[in-house]
Write a protein that binds this DNA or RNA. Structure first.
Lengths: 166, 166
DNA sequence: TCACAACTTGCATAATTATTCTATATGATA
DNA sequence: TATCATATAGAATAATTATGCAAGTTGTGA
């Protein structure tokens, strides 16, 4: 999907710009983006900033500066959860299937695997995933209101290797 | 020093309002200020917010909320924690955070606390709350059909003291 | 393939926020 | 008290940001 790909890249670049220089309004951010080969309008940038939860904060010098939320800077070095050698069912880590329904996702696993997968998802603290409840072979996942199924899938794929090969 | 005195008071009240309710734009803040006996224009409020370093931050529900800077802003670039439905803070009783998604709420707790909190909610028999499912550190709450998030929050606050301070 | 749903984005503009300009007031100092 | 520097805040407006709408795209399923 071409569009999404470039959007992902754009969001990454926006985060880079935010963290590496002092941007005090959205127009000023269009220039660095242009240098990075990205052409968007202020409207799109406004939406991106909202999506990334980037805020315009008064600084100590009487100006305003856009800053990332705390979590994105600190934690969140997307580490993939190690699953493979711990369990049988090599290659899938117990994962069997995933389905979405509105703001819910249901993951089916081999018996006994739900808890550990749910744990990985929970400890990832992804803002898109509000939380999980796990039984023995089923995980109920509650997704945030403005998160698409596709986005939720991408996030979950960070924690479930089997999803990445789909 | 009449003017300064009332300004100081106003700034305190603004901080109170910011921490106790969800304000998403400056106009909306003029009403609570009025109730507190303070009459100012949006222009002055804008200056006050800048002075207090209060920022308008995108939250998890597709809205914007004004928030105070984190306490540790004693120096450099300030970081804002993203606005959850409620900030996880030094919550007592094991409570960590709450988020809403349509007819569901997810409460995160310290490990082992989910059950007891869920028990309190369940035994409260509030008609707005249909039921809960609790794991070890997560509670899934199903909310009735015509119950707003705000209303649900109020009801839950009856059982979760930590919610009442927001 | 076709129809339909979901996503993305620009344009235009609405909505919101910041600031300039001005007036008034306060505090300090001689 | 007179004078000056500083502070405060409203009105108007500039500047900035958010969003409704429409168009184009992509994904999905019959």
């Amino acid at each position: 999907m071409q569009v999404v790909k470039s959007k992902k890249r754009r969001l990454e670049i926006i985060k880079d710009i935010i963290t590496s220089q002092k941007i005090s309004n959205q127009s000023d951010m269009l220039q660095p983006l242009h240098k990075a080969g990205i052409e968007v309008t202020q409207a799109t940038l406004s939406r991106d900033l909202k999506y990334l939860k980037i805020a315009k904060v008064p600084d100590n010098n009487g100006n305003y500066i856009y800053t990332l939320p705390k979590e994105d800077n600190l934690g969140r070095t997307q580490q993939y959860s190690p699953v493979l050698d711990v369990h049988p069912q090599v290659g899938l880590g117990g994962f069997l299937s995933i389905d979405f329904s509105y703001n819910l996702a249901i993951i089916k696993t081999s018996p006994g695997f739900a808890g550990s997968i749910a744990y990985d998802i929970d400890t990832g603290n992804s803002p898109e995933i509000l939380g999980t409840v796990a039984g023995d072979d089923t995980i109920l996942i509650v997704i945030g209101e403005n998160v698409s199924h596709k986005r939720a899938y991408e996030v979950l794929a960070e924690y479930i290797p089997a999803l990445r090969s789909y």
